[in-house]
């Protein structure tokens, strides 16, 4: 990163269970933390282990804040992800139907993905991330710039996925969303971990001054 320290001495253990939600101001390092977990970049120093082992789990998917839609139909995007995940070809039709229904895009299988609305694209990206039935699902601002209805659809899917045992690690700017979905909250600022804990206690009795400031809606500088 050309000598800029983005994450500094971040030591974080993410356990199984309800979603872990990364919060913090812009530039806190939320996206970088997710990209590191996704294996899209290697840490300059330090290491990431999965269940104590260095090898990255194969069943791991990430949804980016601005997902790229392949220049194919909605169904084509899902077919591509199913193929990349090594799902047997005979299961494609059933899975595509299932995934589109899950995110409320029934009947849009043949629509070119880039012709979908912003909210529909975001939901298609979520379905695409779920194609390989991931054990670890990383979501970077999954509902940024979506209207409340589209946000609710995505939150419902996240809840359903987490309930089925997948580990969700996500970032959000929306403290309400962190409250609604979070099992654990991780507050990052300037690449450092300020505070982490179960959502129940984090929001009611934050341990640090920084968390109190951030939760009160004041600027954390």
């Amino acid at each position: 990163m050309r000598g800029v320290t983005i994450l500094d001495r971040l030591s974080l253990t993410v356990g199984a269970g309800a979603p872990t939600v990364l919060i913090g101001p812009n530039g806190a390092g939320k996206t970088t933390a997710l990209r590191l977990m996704a294996g899209l970049m290697a840490p300059t120093s330090g290491r990431i282990t999965w269940g104590g082992r260095p090898d990255v789990p194969a069943r791991r998917a990430i949804m980016f804040q601005k997902p790229a839609m392949l220049r194919r139909s909605a169904g084509g995007n899902l077919r591509y992800a199913l193929n990349a995940a090594g799902i047997p070809r005979r299961d494609y039709a059933g899975r595509i139907h299932e995934l589109l229904a899950l995110v409320g895009l029934d009947g849009l299988e043949r629509r070119p993905a880039r012709r979908l609305s912003g909210g529909e694209q975001q939901r298609l990206a979520l379905a695409r991330a779920l194609a390989g039935d991931p054990a670890v699902l990383l979501l970077d601002e999954p509902t940024a710039s979506l209207d409340p209805a589209a946000t609710k659809t995505i939150e419902d899917v996240i809840r359903a996925v987490a309930a089925k045992g997948a580990k969700v690690v996500m970032s959000t700017h929306d403290l309400g969303q962190a409250r609604r979905l979070g099992g654990d909250i991780v507050l990052l600022h300037r690449g450092r971990l300020l505070e982490t804990g179960p959502a129940a206690t984090f929001f009611t009795s934050p341990q640090t001054e920084a968390a109190r400031i951030f939760l009160a809606g004041d600027l954390l500088v």
Binding site: G39, L40, I62, F64, P67, A68, L70, Y80, A81, A84
Partner: peptide
């Protein structure tokens, strides 16, 4: 535009070119 998505999906080099 596609780099992150295809890399995250573990797509191999030849498959990337074909895509």
């Amino acid at each position: 535009e596609y780099r992150d998505e295809l890399t995250a999906m573990n797509v191999g080099p030849l498959r990337k070119i074909a895509t």
